[in-house]
Amino acid sequence: MATIKDVAAVAGVSFTTVSHVVNNSRPVSADVRAKVEQAIRDLNYVPSAVARSLKARSTATIGLVVPNGTNPYYAELARGVEDGCAQKGYCVFFCNSDDDPAKQRSYLRVLQEKRIDGLIVASTGDDAVLAATLGETREPIVVVDRNIEGLNADLVQIDHERGAWLATRHLLELGHSRIGCITGPVSTAVAAMRMHGFLRAMAERGVEIAPGAIVEADFSGTGGYRAAAQLLDTVRPSAIFAGNDMMGIGALRAAAERGLRVPTDCSIIGFDDIELGQFTWPALSTVGQPVRALGEMAALTLIERIGASGQERTDSTVLRRVMAPQLLPRESTAPWCGTREQATLAA
């Protein structure tokens, strides 16, 4: 691989002159510039990004750590982050922690070694030492989706509680009172907020929830499928609120295997508005905001913070950007017609 000294030798100039041409750091005559540029083309010389970043004290790269790269939600989130970074000339290092706190911490160390300019973290949600680990980093941090307790960092997320309230109220307004809920891991803040929204909507209408009507899963399609199977075989609800779209898609499968027509026999609504939900059959009703927009906002928030990185961050300057969710009714929810003989959810 050609070096800057090789280019200088071919062009017949000093390597500092080559540096001035590459970095546009000082004026160089047109004749000399032409010789250097021709030598660069002939040698296929690629300037060292590491050397340039050391001089500029910036790599124009950020790190993104997500808990599950196979989940379409995080794939769309990553695409949004990439879109936001591209607008500002930044590149992204993508790391998937597989919901493993140890792997998550390992990636954080690697990213710091790469001298990233900033970091976006979607936490696994149950790592007790993550806040302390991130608190020791010098780079600006934006937390997206799941808040990290004890960390003084900018946050970008959906209003989870209100979104779940909107989804549940939608089912209630369609005439459903026998509503089952598939929640994510209750140890995570996201699942807890969405559960609270479900419970609040039910309480406001005075609808009782029988034991067994709330089933915990793991935010995956498989988890949603198993939880819905349990609900449909025991509680027999007329509608299901799934704590995310992947679990809602799993619920669609469980209903189909039992010969139930969605939404005639059972309405199903999810949360997140992932693109895949538009192409299920029937198309999945949901709440949320386009996930890519969330990722883009996180990236732009981080780059804004990088630009102000010389300023000390205090509790009063930490940004809290909460996107308002929207109800997106599609084909998987409809008014309850009482066509399926069911037990009530009330105990």
Rank of each mutant, 00 (worst) to 15 (best):
G206S: 06
P140L: 08
K88C: 09
F198M: 00
A102L: 06
T61W: 07
V66K: 00
H196D: 10
R109T: 11
A189N: 13
D154F: 02
I182N: 09
T137P: 09
N152D: 05
T314R: 15
K114D: 08
E136K: 14
L119N: 04
S53I: 10
A227V: 04
L77E: 01
S25F: 07
S97R: 00
T61R: 15
F219W: 11
L43A: 06
N24Q: 15
D99P: 03
L108Y: 14
V291Y: 00
T339Q: 14
A102V: 12
A256E: 15
A9Y: 10
V291D: 06
Q278G: 01
R200G: 00
A191S: 14
V7Y: 09
P27Y: 12
G150N: 07
G270S: 12
A60I: 00
I268F: 07
A213T: 01
A30M: 12
T333P: 09
R194Q: 01
A228C: 04
L345R: 02
A131M: 08
V10P: 07
E296N: 15
S25Q: 13
D273C: 05
V322T: 11
A324R: 15
D98N: 15
A51F: 04
A192S: 15
Q278K: 12
N23P: 03
A203I: 05
F15N: 08
A167T: 08
Q278P: 06
V207C: 10
F241A: 00
L119I: 04
I182K: 04
Y74A: 01
M202W: 03
S309Q: 15
Q38P: 01
A49H: 09
P325M: 04
L166N: 03
Q38C: 06
E208R: 00
S53E: 13
L345Q: 08
T333W: 04
V10W: 02
K55D: 13
I214Y: 03
K35Q: 07
R79M: 13
I209C: 01
A102T: 10
T124D: 15
S58F: 08
D100R: 00
N71D: 10
A213P: 04
D233C: 02
T59A: 06
S285G: 15
T264M: 02
R313G: 00
I62P: 01
P27M: 12
V215A: 00
I182L: 13
T70E: 04
T17I: 12
S187F: 09
E136Y: 07
G63M: 03
A201S: 11
A324C: 12
M1V: 10
A9S: 14
E161M: 05
A75M: 07
A251W: 01
V142K: 00
T317P: 03
